[in-house]
Design a protein around this nucleic acid. Structure first.
Lengths: 209, 209
DNA sequence: AAAATTACCGACCGATCGGTCTTTTTGTGT
DNA sequence: ACACAAAAAGACCGATCGGTCGGTAATTTT
């Protein structure tokens, strides 16, 4: 039941989306032109319209693909760690490693697109906001688990902790990209690590430095 | 010795730059088109080229104007506070108030433009990086003063502190804009306040909540 | 009053934007 | 060999992009 035509279409579709996520991590999702995307993927521009009706639909597909990549590189590996503060820390650590890995030539898809669409209402903005919200919800849920397990102090404000983790993760990208502060990753790591250690009755679960 | 022609030119020039800073805080510095800027300021598009040779020169002028606005609304008021941890805190607080004030319709010029140019080499990127570097240098200098005055622990890492303050200030904008988390300002305030209190031998200098 | 300077405008240019239409290639069933 | 469908290509469209050009109105200098 393998239709080679459909398979071919699926292949180019994901190839285009992967290239688009990388390209959007550099230029942004709106500044990425269809002509350049088509050229980079060795597909004709009209070939893109064979897969998505317009640019907006493609942008939404790109966001979904970016979420998939993020999940595969950050969330899934972090969930190999046991529940609690170790998993919470792993989320942050994996994120920073993902940035350093160079999988996306622009560093981070979401950092690049967030500022671009925060004042531009529409489905694309909504999808981006939903993706970020899901990520924050995940952090909060893992942090809440850590509280339940007694690995974070019971009076820890998980909303506050999620804000700070996200802020430092975001800052690692902006610092290391615009300025060429190669120490950004270390600062981002230290900030969250010290914070979690100060909130945890069992700091031995976290790495030393 | 007042040349009315030069005065007129200076008036429209600053009017255009003010509008451009606001517009760029929404759309970004490259996505801002000259036709729209000209229309918004009731100047003809060719009128813009009478003042700046090309878009890049205008972008550089816009950055200088944004620095000026930032200095007037954030730095100068904060320097009314006495040297040390109070001034350091005031820098963060004034920044958050500036965001909430709605002076710039897009929230923050630098947040909007940073991600846009971090992978786009050239004079505009260099100017943006220089502006951010100056801001970080200022934070570090004020923090170092606080250490000297004994208002921050002598082993406090001013580079690390500057990273965290900038990260939380930045996050206030991104959180309150894309998501409509109205609590963002409170999280950003709490994060830095608690951090400074924990680093200060004289936490009484800082506000209570 | 003439000349020079400054600010600014409307018309226009080539290039590129997102998007449409028609046609060709590629693979699947009979 | 055939019809059929999915994928992709190519030519093309109106709108908009940054930028140029010739010219005009206002003001200052001579």
């Amino acid at each position: 039941m393998a239709d080679g035509r459909l398979a071919r279409g699926e292949r180019t579709r994901t190839a285009v989306l992967d290239a688009a996520v990388s390209m959007a991590s550099v230029d942004g999702l709106e500044a990425m032109s269809l002509a350049r995307l088509a050229h980079a993927t060795e597909v004709s521009k009209s070939g893109l319209f064979a897969h998505w009706p317009d640019k907006e639909a493609l942008q939404l597909a790109v966001i979904a693909r970016a979420v998939h990549i993020w999940t595969a590189h950050v969330v899934t590996p972090a969930f190999a760690e046991p529940r609690g503060v170790r998993r919470l820390w792993a989320l942050h650590e994996r994120r920073i490693e993902f940035y350093a890995s160079g999988v996306l030539s622009g560093g981070c898809f979401f950092v690049a697109t967030q500022a671009e669409f925060d004042d531009r209402p529409g489905p694309v903005r909504d999808a981006l906001a939903a993706a970020i919200n899901d990520w924050l919800f995940l952090i909060k849920a893992v942090a809440a688990q850590a509280v339940e397990l007694g690995e974070l102090r019971p009076d820890a404000d998980v909303e506050q902790v999620a804000f700070e983790i996200e802020a430092h993760g975001h800052a690692v990208v902006t610092f290391s990209r615009l300025l060429h502060a190669e120490g950004a990753a270390a600062y981002g790591r230290t900030a969250v690590l010290e914070r979690l250690r100060s909130l945890s009755p069992v700091p031995g679960l976290l790495p030393a430095s």
